[in-house]
Amino acid sequence: MAKVFGAVTIDADMCKGCNLCVVACPTDVLALQPQEVNDRGYHYAFPEKPDACIGCAACATVCPDACIEVYRVVDKNI
């Protein structure tokens, strides 16, 4: 059975902290920064539990500011 490894990168400077990606993620990978803000004062999103990511791109699909990039690797040997 193949295993899917995913990872997301978030452009913290472009993020407006709207929380839509956090809601859309099926595996609860993302969260908003509880304290830190970016240059514009938004609590930007970050991968809180990066190991759970399956690279489904749900977060990036709903992101209004197109600041999420998604990477996916399917390992067929596992």
């Binding site: 990168t9 472009m14 690279g55 197109a66 990039e69 998604v70 996916r72």
Partner: peptide, 29 residues
């Protein structure tokens, strides 16, 4: 995992690299 050959979704090139004036979470984006 984060290598160019594994990229499945990213910002479209036609979208200018600027901040939009839309409110956070706006459907326009």
């Amino acid at each position: 995992i984060i290598r160019p050959e594994n990229k499945v979704y990213g910002r479209p090139e036609l979208l200018m690299p600027v901040h939009t004036h839309y409110c956070p979470g706006c459907s326009h984006g």
